[in-house]
Design a protein around this nucleic acid. Structure first.
Lengths: 159, 159
DNA sequence: AGACAATGATTTAAGTTTAAACTAAGTGCC
DNA sequence: GGCACTTAGTTTAAACTTAAATCATTGTCT
């Protein structure tokens, strides 16, 4: 056969196909990142994500802000932050305005480590997304943004 | 605070930006799916994913095939399958050719349930991906496929 | 001030996930 | 046959994750 015929897939399952492919990509990339963090830094992905979030906001973040940023539950952040704190990578100190909340920041050691980890993290991502033309980049970003906005809008409706 | 100031991200970090947006999308969609499965079927996402995989292959899958299909470790599948088996949704029976492996299939009850769950699952995905033109669909699928192939190729090199 | 809802964070219980070690069974090679 | 190597699956320990309950504090309204 000169041409390969694609199996016909009903249009109404297009969402499913895209979703499964999206999942493939994220799982593959995450696996690579996880492996690199473990082998080179003895670090887990969730811990890195907390440190990376903190590295973007030198003033620090509260536990709630962290949980929103990472899109995980607050209880989840509590556990991760506890271990990072034990390892001396982050510091939690009370906020002056609200006695319930903490301001979480990187320690100098944590800041130094996260810089090195982010370099490796970005190296992997450049590899993964290399081969995309500028046009593809813009396309992908635009489409993903529309999907994201759409789901956020749907969620508001449901409340 | 969170929304106000994001640091400028240089162009060479395009991979990073795309990746973070990709993660946003998958986490948002997963959250919706998780919630629907829990509220409407008292079901978790991982359990659903196993049942859904089995629903695509009536002959059944081995534990290893399941773990590859879902891109998780074999040990992970062992636990999920155990609970699904206790609940009577799947059945594991020895294969004639290899005494180490099992053939896992849905029970009639499991098959009936997974059909209903998949309808809901697909409904959410159509909602999430609605608003994309046919052209966007093709674009997105094409780009995601290239990313996937690229990472799989990279992984081979590393071995 | 006092009642009461809302918020920041932790705790709890159950379940998921991973990496690594392990058992048992198949494969290949001499 | 016997030996090394691989493969199928489980087990283990540690970590992660969620949803729900709880505690303490803050905000609001009268």
């Amino acid at each position: 056969m000169l041409t390969t015929k694609l199996r016909h897939i009903p249009a109404e399952k297009e969402g499913l196909r895209l979703w499964l492919r999206l999942l493939d990509c994220t799982r593959l990339v995450e696996e690579e990142i996880r492996r690199a963090l473990r082998e080179k830094f003895d670090m887990t992905l969730p811990r890195f994500e907390v440190m990376s979030a903190l590295n973007r906001v030198p003033e620090g973040l509260t536990m709630s802000e962290l949980s929103q940023w990472l899109m995980v539950t607050k209880g989840n952040v509590t556990g991760i932050a506890e271990r990072l704190s034990e390892d001396g990578y982050i510091r939690r100190r009370p906020t002056p305005t609200d006695r319930r909340s903490f301001c979480v920041t990187l320690t100098p050691g944590g800041a130094q480590l996260v810089e090195r980890m982010e370099a490796e993290y970005e190296r992997i991502l450049e590899l993964a997304f290399a081969g995309l033309e500028r046009e593809d980049d813009d396309n992908l970003m635009g489409i993903l943004t529309r999907i994201k906005d759409r789901i956020e809008a749907l969620r508001e409706l449901e409340e």
